[in-house]
């Protein structure tokens, strides 16, 4: 029962704190333009061009390619393209971790779907029809590959930071802790599920967690769930929440080149932003209007 509560709480806290963080960034005041080309939604984005390449650009219809923006965003989200392009050796390790995490997210969803299937009286096994077999094999594939990749990735990134002279100088103990936490979460998972490679027990436990049904638990499982709880709560509070930040840094900063044209929605936002008075102000004499004491 208490494990069920802990599991639900972990998910609620993870989603809630992540959403709160996104809300905080979304609510920040309109900032000055800081776009950086190439901006994928621009028609000439292949070479980094923009609407500024047109004479009287402000008089012409703006062509925005949202699909190109979406594709670039997906390339970043799914493949970490910039790292692939600019630092391949690190990409292999980082991508192993991230792909592992994506697979484990899929695995979790599949466990829930499988658990719900069991609760609904269905079966999940190779011989229980297309649905049951699909869930069975996908769960096994995502769980096994996810655990292996995420464990390998977090361990290698941890070791790379220790043995790389440059990275070591910049890595704080907290940053080692972040990687160690991910590693502990996956390794404890491996220990828990090592004798359950098809995750049938995991699915039953998930069904029990969903339905608040008491079940027998091992000390190892309790430790795993507690680590997961800590991890899910901690991630949104730490800079590992870059899944939130990355959206804003690309969409709202580097790729945000909306011009302030007469009658546009942006003009309205600018008007509102300029009307806002700040509660803090700078103190240098040329701003505060006070002559420096010694002049």
């Amino acid at each position: 029962m208490s494990l069920s509560i802990l599991a639900y709480l972990a998910i609620i806290l993870f989603l809630g704190l992540s959403a709160y963080k996104a809300y905080k960034y979304a609510k920040m005041p309109l900032h000055g333009r800081m776009e950086l080309y190439p901006v994928p939604k621009e028609q000439g984005h292949e070479y980094g061009g923009s609407y500024f390449e047109e004479v009287e650009w402000w008089n012409k219809e703006r062509k925005v390619n949202h699909m190109a923006e979406l594709i670039d965003m997906l390339k970043e989200m799914l493949f970490i393209k910039k790292l692939f392009d600019n630092q391949r050796p690190l990409w292999w390790l980082s991508y192993a971790l991230h792909l592992g995490i994506y697979l484990l997210i899929a695995w979790t969803v599949l466990l829930i779907v499988g658990g719900l299937t069991l609760l609904a009286g269905g079966q999940v096994s190779p011989s229980s029809g297309i649905w049951g077999a699909l869930i069975f094999y996908l769960t096994a594939f995502t769980g096994l590959s996810g655990l292996v990749l995420a464990t390998f990735g977090s361990a290698m990134l941890f070791l790379r930071r220790i043995f790389d002279d440059t990275l070591r100088k910049y890595t704080t103990p907290q940053e080692y802790f972040n990687l160690a936490l991910l590693y502990c979460a996956t390794v404890s998972g491996i220990f828990v599920w090592i004798n359950d490679l098809t995750f049938s027990t995991a699915r039953e436990i998930t069904a029990n967690l969903i339905s608040f049904t008491p079940f027998e638990v091992s000390g190892l499982l309790i430790a795993h769930i507690v680590i997961l709880f800590i991890m899910f709560t901690y991630i949104p509070l730490s800079k590992m929440s870059h899944y939130v930040g990355k959206y804003f840094s690309f969409h709202k900063v580097l790729w945000e080149n909306e011009p302030n044209l007469r009658g546009s929605a942006m003009e309205k936002k600018v008007e509102q932003a300029l009307a806002r008075r700040s509660t803090n102000s700078w103190s240098a004499p040329h701003i505060s209007g006070q002559a420096p004491a010694e002049e």
Binding site: P29, M34, S249, S278, S281
Partner: peptide, 11 residues
């Protein structure tokens, strides 16, 4: 980190 810097706060 305050509204004195609102024009650049988010980035």
């Amino acid at each position: 980190f305050t509204d004195a810097n609102s024009g650049v706060l988010q980035p």
